[in-house]
Design a protein around this nucleic acid. Sequence first.
DNA 1: CGCTGACCCTGACGGC
DNA 2: TGCCGTCAGGGTCAGC
Length: 270
Amino acid sequence: MPELPEVETTCRGIAPHVLHRKVTKVVVREPRLRWPVPERLHQLLAGSRFISVSRRAKYLLLETDHGTLMVHLGMSGSLRILPATTPPMFHDHIDILLDDGRCLRYHDPRRFGSFHWLGASRLHPLLDHLGPEPLSEDFTGKYLYGRSRGRRIPVKQFVMDGKIIVGVGNIYANEALFMSGIHPIRAAGRIGQARYEALVDAIKTVLGDAIAQGGTTLRDFVGGDGAPGYFAQQLRVYGREGQPCRICQQVLKEIRQGGRSTVLCTRCQR
DNA sequence: CGCTGACCCTGACGGC
DNA sequence: TGCCGTCAGGGTCAGC
């Protein structure tokens, strides 16, 4: 599910409601996520006050005065702000009750998401070795060009590697490669700096546009206010295999790379 | 070190 | 109608 724009949408959606609120109670109905939810979560969070809400890669960081809660939405997770009295639905695994009568509710049918407690250091092995943020100034064509030298991995898998650049998932990797006219199978090390400049521009553009649209809702994604994202209707290639390319009308082709689907235009992408 | 495939889990969908 | 296989936005890990 959520790629970076969806996580960012969630972050922005919940932040104003969570910030400065004190946790009164934590209810874990189902601790079996990607990793087991800390059993002490209630003791760790109850009485703490949220002092910042941010995002690193696809992780949400909810900082309190006693430590930081790190949440990953996996493939099917979502976080919503609701009145604490709202009855939980199927797959509503965790509630963080706030002192204003509302709660932050975690919903995740596939349970690929995770909750970690970072403590005061805000450090965690999962946050080590992450590449730069794609919307930051550190992410440039020159950077991608440098990191790709000697790499024979297909460029699509290269840009989906979180050690190289975070937050580029399957949807937006497909879109950015189409937008920059690069064939997804091309070896990363055999692409020049000018083309990487174009690819970086495309990644920044597509992620920025998707954030502006509230993310991409394919099935079940909702932002912090429960609203779906509207970027799906602007997708250029993802999910459009068999349909005509919006530029040249060639029928879009689907292939598989690393177990994930790639959609491309063989005329526009070389 | 670089890369591939299996795996975690539920639900939706298509074919028969 | 129902059963079965396949696939889905993510990420880690073992193994070659």
